[in-house]
Deep mutational scan, measured.
Amino acid sequence: GTLHLNGVTVKVPSLEKAIKAAKKFAKKYNLEVQVHGNTVHVH
């Protein structure tokens, strides 16, 4: 999967790991997580 954090793109081995990391990051910075196919966006 691919993880987008505020314009930074990170390749992640699995989508589940990407979503987990995204949710952790989003919670910390009070951001929103959106999943588009195998790409996770945090903004």
Rank of each mutant, 00 (worst) to 15 (best):
G1T: 10
G1M: 10
G1P: 11
G1W: 15
G1C: 15
G1Q: 09
G1A: 15
T2K: 10
T2P: 04
T2V: 13
T2E: 07
T2G: 05
T2F: 15
T2D: 04
L3Q: 02
L3T: 03
L3A: 03
L3Y: 01
L3E: 01
H4N: 08
L5A: 05
L5I: 14
N6P: 10
N6Q: 08
N6E: 05
N6D: 05
G7L: 08
G7M: 08
G7F: 11
G7N: 08
V8L: 13
V8C: 15
V8H: 12
V8R: 12
T9M: 12
T9I: 15
T9K: 09
T9Q: 08
T9N: 06
T9E: 08
V10E: 02
V10Y: 15
V10D: 01
V10S: 04
K11F: 13
K11P: 08
K11T: 10
K11E: 06
K11N: 10
V12K: 04
V12R: 04
V12L: 15
V12A: 05
P13Q: 13
P13T: 13
P13S: 14
P13K: 14
P13M: 11
S14H: 08
S14A: 05
S14E: 04
L15D: 00
L15R: 02
L15T: 02
L15S: 01
L15N: 00
E16A: 14
E16L: 12
E16Q: 11
E16C: 14
K17E: 11
K17T: 07
K17I: 12
K17N: 08
K17S: 10
K17P: 01
A18M: 09
A18S: 03
A18H: 01
A18R: 03
A18Y: 07
A18L: 13
I19M: 06
I19W: 07
I19T: 01
I19Q: 01
I19N: 00
I19P: 00
K20G: 04
K20S: 08
A21D: 05
A21Q: 07
A21G: 02
A21R: 09
A21L: 15
A22G: 02
A22Q: 00
A22D: 00
K23S: 04
K23G: 02
K23P: 00
K24D: 06
K24S: 08
K24H: 08
K24Y: 12
F25I: 06
F25S: 00
F25Q: 00
F25D: 00
F25C: 11
F25N: 00
A26F: 08
A26G: 04
A26I: 06
A26R: 04
A26D: 00
A26P: 00
K27V: 04
K27I: 06
K27G: 03
K27M: 07
K27A: 10
K28D: 02
K28G: 01
K28H: 05
K28L: 08
K28C: 14
Y29L: 04
Y29F: 09
Y29G: 01
N30A: 08
N30T: 05
N30M: 09
L31P: 00
L31S: 01
L31E: 00
L31K: 02
E32Y: 11
E32H: 12
E32C: 15
E32W: 11
E32Q: 12
E32V: 14
V33D: 00
V33G: 00
V33C: 08
V33H: 01
V33R: 00
V33K: 00
Q34C: 15
Q34S: 13
Q34N: 07
Q34F: 14
Q34D: 06
V35H: 02
V35I: 11
V35E: 02
V35M: 05
V35G: 01
H36K: 09
H36E: 12
H36L: 13
H36Q: 09
G37Q: 05
G37W: 08
G37D: 05
G37N: 06
G37E: 05
N38E: 05
N38K: 07
N38L: 10
N38A: 06
N38F: 11
T39Y: 10
T39K: 07
T39F: 10
T39S: 11
T39C: 15
T39N: 09
V40L: 06
V40C: 05
V40P: 02
V40F: 03
V40H: 03
H41I: 14
H41N: 08
H41A: 12
H41M: 14
H41W: 14
V42Q: 02
V42W: 05
V42I: 14
V42D: 00
V42K: 03
V42Y: 07
V42L: 13
V42E: 02
H43W: 14
H43P: 02
H43Y: 14
H43Q: 09
H43I: 13
